[in-house]
Computed example of a mutant assay.
Amino acid sequence: MKICVFCSANNQIDPEFFALTEELGKWAVENGHTIVYGGVNQGLMECLAKATKGAGGHTIGVVPMKVEESGRMSDYVDVEIPCDNLTDRKQLMMDQSDVFIALPGGLGTLDEVFTVAASATIGYHHKSVILYNMGGCWNQLIALLNDLQQKGMIRGEWQQYIKTADSLEEISRLI
């Protein structure tokens, strides 16, 4: 299975997130999965790729031109899929992947999560996004989604498109 991972490219975040991200990379390899990711050499992205490669796994980096031009592409990318911009990147990631896991991240990660979920709601695909709720990092987003659901802003149940998991065991069950 190809698992696309959305996550932070920031190095200045909780060290626990790095440890759990490393475990995810190793888990993916142990279970025969390929990692699709943004291809950046910083933050959780680099941690994930390094752990995946270190365990003998395979990575696919979907790398925007600006990332490559700025010298921020990871050395742990096995297959590079170049793209023009972030919109292209999201589409290529959706095309390449079977399921999506969102680790802690910022605006880019949120953009990716909601692009994939919104595309699923109108039938472009039937793939889920899993919020890996490391250390409760997604608690406020989950509360917001529940609030929007309660107010009738979301048709159906948001959990049809966005799943939540607090552990690798829960991720295993969801995929």
Rank of each mutant, 00 (worst) to 15 (best):
K66A: 15
T34H: 11
I122Y: 10
A51P: 08
P15N: 04
I35C: 03
T21E: 03
E80P: 05
V29L: 06
A117G: 08
I60E: 05
Y37V: 11
S74N: 04
I3L: 15
E112R: 08
T34V: 13
E23S: 14
L168W: 06
E22T: 12
C7G: 04
S172W: 00
G156T: 11
I101A: 07
V99G: 12
T164V: 15
I81N: 01
N146H: 11
G25N: 11
D111F: 07
Q96G: 02
P15D: 06
C7A: 12
T52A: 12
A19M: 10
K127E: 01
I175L: 14
P82C: 00
M134L: 15
G25K: 09
L107W: 05
I171R: 04
A51F: 11
G25I: 10
L107V: 14
V67L: 09
D147V: 13
C7W: 07
I3S: 07
T121D: 03
L141P: 00
M65K: 12
C4I: 04
A49H: 08
M94Y: 10
A28N: 09
L144T: 13
G106F: 08
W27T: 03
I142R: 05
V40R: 11
Y37W: 14
A117F: 10
G71C: 03
C4V: 04
I122G: 00
L110K: 03
E80V: 14
P82E: 01
I175H: 02
L44C: 13
K151I: 05
A118K: 06
E68Q: 12
N10H: 06
A120C: 03
Q96A: 15
T52Q: 06
L20V: 13
K53H: 11
A49N: 08
H58A: 01
A120Y: 02
M1S: 14
S70P: 00
V129Y: 04
M1H: 10
L20H: 07
V40L: 09
N139F: 06
K50L: 10
I13L: 03
C7Y: 07
T52C: 13
M65S: 06
